[in-house]
Nucleic acid binder design. Structure first.
Lengths: 237, 237
DNA sequence: CGTACGGTTGATACATATCAATATGCGTGG
DNA sequence: CCACGCATATTGATATGTATCAACCGTACG
């Protein structure tokens, strides 16, 4: 992502009706972001809903810590997770009036929300901010489009491999090298399954298979060691 | 999509190495768009590549007529179509330097391309243009995210049904009513399959099944009559 | 009128889902 | 601190939707 005057990292999607109290952020929190300065902060506990699908989208959110899942539910309970947001990611952004997805805390997390109208007004005469927001949208788009290929054309193995590599990269902040690397996953198998368009059983089986093949190791269910990244990458194409 | 000073309709993705000659557009073409005014026009024939994956993305495209498919290829030939662009749609837009998808003419089509640098420069001090471009990106994002749900969690029937309803809406320009409606599809079964993450055989079988159930009629392979939109809609959620 | 390409239909294979049982980890309360 | 009980995860057996392989059909075109 290109550098901008405003420090926003790429991610997407809106917000409204939480189970946390929003307080003005005056003190020095994190890298005193413009958004943080403009907004209020709240903490959500595991599985709490940050905003629901169809709710009015009059705020934009920035994740300070923790992990958030952005998802859509089908009438019969099928769920698709469009994205996992990590610290620094922006979500809850909408052009329309309402959220098209819901957002939930995967684990305990801290979020800033900013009134959309305020941000929009600022963006009108602050070209840098406008571009930063645009970059957020574009980043989301790139991610979503990549995921289309995963969901449309990849096998279970390839999906899991690309997920692991992606998470490793995002969480470490750098491209995964040839060297072994451990990832601490914040989300459950069910979340992974709903992100990859698979069932929980298939995810589990695929992971143990990758372990058998010595591409990864599973010291515990949430901790995954990428032992052979090039093998994983091979599955990833 | 919200109205803007600049008439751009929502769609996405970049451009470089065509098999058509680009000429300055002076004459009155279509609704003399700003983009048309700034750019040059070319015509592509069926299956011609408008730009390829990884090519430099220094232009942005607007489709004047015809249909374009925006797609990605996997090493072994698997293909995922991220989007079909119809007349008025913008594509080939990138934040990064290179195209992440290729674009090909589904049938004969006419395209305007504008230098990205020019558009970018204008957008810097034309807030309306900036917002219009942003809206294009956001529209693409919404479409892509919707498609994630289709690819991740829907059955073949549901995919085909949502595709038909979507195409009917986009091509007619209005929400499909309860009344029967005919769609003239510009793309082949293979294109549909690659868009929906299915095989050509499954698409074909699903269509004939929908015909058996009297949800649609197939006067010819490219013409499809939506006979029972509510039934299709039922499959859609 | 024949050939070619796109589409349909059929028979079978396979990857992943589903259903079911067992295991593992984790927080709670005794 | 340990034991219980619930959550989450793994593993197994089987079912099923879609892919694959293979003909066949129809329409457009030379």
């Amino acid at each position: 992502m290109p550098s901008t005057a405003v420090a926003i990292s790429p991610k997407m999607f809106g917000h409204p009706v939480p189970a946390g109290t929003w307080v003005e952020e005056n003190g020095s929190v994190h890298s005193a972001d413009l958004l943080v300065a403009l907004g209020s902060v709240a903490t959500f506990s595991r599985n709490a809903e940050i905003f629901s699908e169809d709710a009015l989208a009059d705020h934009i959110y920035v994740l300070l810590s923790g992990t958030v899942r952005v998802c859509k539910l089908l009438g019969d309970g099928r769920r698709q997770i469009a994205n996992f947001c990590l610290a620094g990611d922006v979500f809850g952004w909408e052009m329309g009036a309402r959220h098209r997805f819901s957002a939930e805390a995967v684990g305990e997390c801290k979020v800033v929300r900013v009134k959309r109208s305020i941000l929009f007004a600022r963006a009108a005469d602050d070209a840098d901010l406008a571009q930063a927001l645009w970059a957020v949208t574009a980043g989301e788009l790139a991610r979503a489009q990549n995921h289309l290929l995963v969901l449309g054309r990849k096998t279970a193995q390839e999906r899991v491999a690309s997920f692991l590599l992606d998470m490793a990269e995002r969480m470490s902040g750098s491209v995964v090298s040839g060297r072994a690397q451990e990832v601490q996953l914040p989300m459950s198998r069910q979340d992974i399954a709903d992100y990859l368009g698979l069932t929980i059983e298939t995810v589990s089986r695929t992971l143990t298979h990758l372990e058998d093949v010595e591409a990864i190791a599973l010291p515990s269910s949430r901790r995954i060691v990428l032992r052979n990244c090039s093998a994983l990458r091979g599955l990833n194409v």
